[in-house]
Computed example of a mutant assay.
Amino acid sequence: MTKFLTKWSRKFHRWIAVPTALLIPVAVIIKLIGDPQTVAAWEQLDKVPSILMLVMAISGTYLFLLPYIVKGQRKKKVASEAAETSAVRRKWPAGS
Rank of each mutant, 00 (worst) to 15 (best):
I33T: 13
I58T: 13
L5F: 11
E43V: 09
I29P: 13
L5N: 08
R90H: 03
L23P: 12
V39F: 01
D46K: 12
L63T: 01
G60F: 07
P93S: 09
R89S: 12
M1Y: 09
A57E: 06
Y62M: 06
S96K: 09
L23Q: 01
V88L: 14
T61N: 05
K31N: 15
L54K: 05
A83I: 07
A82K: 05
S80W: 02
L5V: 05
L66C: 01
I29D: 08
Y62E: 03
V26W: 15
F4G: 05
I51H: 06
V70R: 12
V88N: 14
I69Y: 11
T2V: 09
K77P: 05
L54G: 05
R90Y: 09
V70D: 04
P19L: 08
I29A: 13
Q73E: 01
Y62Q: 06
Q37N: 10
W8E: 07
F4W: 12
T38G: 04
R10T: 08
P36H: 14
K11H: 02
I58D: 13
I69H: 06
P67E: 11
A79R: 01
G95W: 11
A83L: 12
A94K: 10
T85N: 08
W42R: 06
K75A: 00
K31C: 09
L32Y: 04
A83Q: 05
A21H: 00
E81T: 05
L54R: 10
L22V: 15
S96F: 07
G95K: 00
Y62I: 02
S86E: 15
V39T: 03
D46Y: 13
I24G: 05
A83N: 02
G34L: 12
V88G: 01
D35G: 15
V48T: 08
T2H: 14
S80D: 08
A94F: 11
T2S: 12
W42M: 08
A79M: 02
V88I: 14
S86Y: 11
G72S: 12
K76E: 05
S59N: 07
T6N: 04
L63F: 04
K91Q: 14
G60C: 04
V70C: 02
L5P: 04
R14E: 10
Q37E: 13
L63E: 02
Q44I: 09
G72P: 07
I29F: 15
S80F: 00
A17L: 08
I58F: 14
P93R: 07
R90A: 07
K3M: 09
L52Q: 01
I69A: 11
L45M: 15
I69K: 02
P49V: 00
P93H: 03
K91Y: 12
F12T: 14
L65N: 03
P67V: 05
V18Q: 15
P25I: 08
V70K: 10
A83W: 11
